[in-house]
Amino acid sequence: MTNVNHASSRVTPLLELRLFYYDFLRRTFLMEPTKDFLVFVKNSMITPDFPLASEREMILEGVQQIKNYLSKNDIQSETVYNDLHWEFTRLFIGPYQLPSPPWESTYLNEERLLFQEETLAVRKAYLKYSFLPVEFGHEADDHLGLELDFMFRLSQLCLENNDENGVDLRQLLMDQKSFLEEHLLQWVPKFSHDMIQHAETDFYRGMGKILRGFLTLDLEALLELLKIYS
C-alpha cells in the first residue's frame, strides 16, 4: 500500500494537468465561444508559464499567439466577441464549405461523410463508460469537441481512482491511450493543419497549435503513467 500511495502522490499533479488541458480544449471546440469562455481563456493565459508550454514547441507557439491576440484585443468588446464567434462558425459550422470540418469521419473515410464506420467505432468506446453525448442523435459522436469531452471524463475518473491499488487506473489509462492512438491522433494532426492554415485570427491559430501539441505530448504522458502502474 505504501508503494501505491507513493505512486499516487507522484502522478497526481500530472493527472491534474491532463484534466486542465482536456477541459480547456473541449470548451474550445464543443461550441461557439461564449463571453464566459473568453474570460476563462484570458485568465488561463495570465500566468507567466502556461502549463506544459515548455514541453512542446507547438504548445508554446500557440500560447504566444493567443497571448499576443489578447494583448491587442479587448475580449469584453462586442466587436471582438462577434469576430471570434464568426471565426468559429466559418471554420467549424458553416453555412459555407468548411475549411476544417471537426469530425473524425470527414478525415478518415474517402466520401468524407458523417455517421460512418468511424462514428460507430467512437460510439463503442463511449458506451464502455456509459458516455452519451448531450447532442446524441443530432451531432455525430466523432465531433472533436465530444471526443475531447470523453477524454476529459476519463481523466476525471483517473483522479478519482488514483488512491487504491492501481488496477482500475491502469485500465483507464490504457483505454485513453487506445482512444488517442486509434482516434484523435489519426485525424487531429491534419485537422489542426487545416485549422491553422485557414484561421484568420491568432486566437484560433494558437488553439490549433495547442491542440496538436498537447495530444502528442499526452500520448507520451500516458506511456509514462502506464510504466508506473505496470
Score class of each variant (00 low, 15 high):
126 Y>W: 03
174 M>I: 15
70 L>A: 15
12 T>V: 03
137 G>L: 01
47 T>D: 09
176 Q>E: 13
105 S>L: 03
28 T>G: 06
87 E>G: 14
128 K>F: 03
225 L>N: 06
196 I>K: 14
192 S>L: 09
22 Y>D: 04
140 A>K: 14
149 D>F: 10
30 L>V: 14
66 I>A: 13
206 G>A: 12
13 P>E: 05
223 L>H: 09
83 D>M: 15
68 N>S: 15
196 I>L: 13
80 V>N: 12
109 N>W: 02
75 I>L: 14
86 W>E: 11
90 R>L: 02
3 N>V: 03
201 T>N: 12
137 G>H: 02
183 H>W: 05
184 L>S: 02
123 R>K: 10
214 F>G: 05
53 A>V: 05
212 R>T: 07
41 V>S: 06
122 V>F: 13
220 E>Q: 04
164 E>C: 03
58 M>A: 07
157 L>A: 12
55 E>D: 12
158 C>Q: 09
215 L>F: 06
34 T>W: 14
187 W>V: 04
96 Y>I: 03
29 F>S: 05
143 H>C: 10
97 Q>P: 02
180 L>T: 14
114 L>M: 09
88 F>G: 13
11 V>F: 00
17 L>H: 10
187 W>F: 08
73 N>T: 15
105 S>C: 03
143 H>G: 07
198 H>R: 12
123 R>Y: 03
86 W>F: 12
58 M>T: 05
168 D>G: 12
120 L>A: 12
193 H>S: 08
89 T>S: 12
12 T>N: 02
27 R>F: 06
116 Q>S: 04
205 R>H: 11
229 Y>F: 03
220 E>T: 01
92 F>Q: 07
38 L>H: 14
148 L>C: 04
67 K>F: 07
202 D>E: 14
74 D>A: 11
163 D>K: 00
77 S>T: 14
118 E>L: 08
45 M>G: 09
13 P>Y: 03
133 P>N: 08
212 R>D: 08
7 A>D: 05
25 L>F: 05
28 T>W: 07
28 T>Q: 05
197 Q>D: 11
82 N>G: 03
166 G>K: 01
204 Y>N: 04
136 F>P: 00
93 I>F: 02
199 A>E: 04
128 K>P: 06
89 T>D: 06
149 D>P: 05
230 S>A: 11
187 W>Y: 09
145 G>N: 05
40 F>A: 07
86 W>M: 11
52 L>C: 07
73 N>C: 13
95 P>L: 01
25 L>R: 10
92 F>S: 06
172 L>E: 00
68 N>M: 13
91 L>A: 05
190 K>Q: 08
83 D>S: 15
126 Y>P: 01
133 P>D: 06
101 P>I: 10
139 E>C: 11
106 T>C: 03
92 F>A: 07
114 L>G: 01
3 N>I: 03
88 F>C: 09
73 N>S: 15
73 N>F: 07
185 L>V: 08
2 T>K: 00
203 F>E: 06
118 E>I: 06
180 L>I: 13
134 V>C: 07
5 N>F: 01
77 S>L: 11
99 P>T: 13
138 H>S: 09
54 S>F: 08
122 V>C: 14
71 S>Y: 08
